[in-house]
Design a protein around this nucleic acid. Structure first.
Lengths: 123, 123
DNA sequence: AATATTTTTTAGAATGATTCTAAAAAATAG
DNA sequence: CTATTTTTTAGAATCATTCTAAAAAATATT
């Protein structure tokens, strides 16, 4: 584990904000002001390939990186706002229904956030 | 509903292939050889905003568009291959666990497809 | 501890999907 | 028919991400 890889993993694991690569870059520069953006992408890809972080893609937004710890997401259908939500683990239940081994699953619940709810009323 | 919108909706609703915008473009040109790519994007966005089609984002690949009909997805962790899978509807079960109204949900199961399985063994 | 090998970093260019722009065309309303 | 709104169009612009090829750093080998 390289120093950048280590630090990036820490940043993501500690964050509850589903950071973009750009945000990780900004955060990392607090500790390493000269680091290159490509290094952030390299390390994010390596961490992800190694299964040490999650990647969350919400349509139309840059990929976001997330801690591994089991949890699911609420996504606003309008603005893409992303919230953590703790739901019961479905692995058992799902595995029963398919015959290939499931490594993990990604569950996003779609809703309309308060802000968009308000906006929608004035249209 | 414009003629392009109509036709694009038909293409996606009939397809089981999670088409990219580019693929929809190619398909649409069978019927309308002069249509512009921007028109495809315009209509896909409008259809999606109207909740008439789904958008499936797999990290690192162009967005894919999918019929609305309830079904879930298997995604290969290595190559991104996407397969339909019919799982029990979880809406009730999930709605009990959150206090905002759930419009829909998006469930992706991660696995390793046969091809990637084979490749992995030779490494 | 010097040399070779492999991995990582770097800056910047390149790519590729998608959006934007502003004008033309088409559809709809008055 | 004329005015207004919506859609289409082509091409430029944007933006996230990957690629490139060289430099630096880390690791292994003698």
């Amino acid at each position: 584990m390289t120093k950048y890889g280590q630090k990036i993993w820490e940043i993501i694991s500690a964050s509850r904000n589903h950071m973009t690569a750009e945000q990780v870059f900004t955060a990392l520069r607090q500790s390493y002001p000269t680091v290159a953006l490509a290094t952030v992408y390299n390390n994010l890809n390596r961490l992800w390939a190694a299964g040490r972080i999650r990647k969350v893609s919400v349509e139309g937004m840059p990929d976001r990186y997330d801690r591994l710890e089991r949890h699911d997401h609420l996504v606003c259908r309008r603005c893409g706002r992303l919230l953590d939500v703790d739901l019961a683990d479905l692995t058992q239940q799902l595995q029963k229904q398919v015959d290939v081994p499931i490594l993990s699953y990604d569950l996003k619940l779609t809703y309309i956030c308060d802000d968009c709810q308000k906006q929608g009323q004035s249209e």
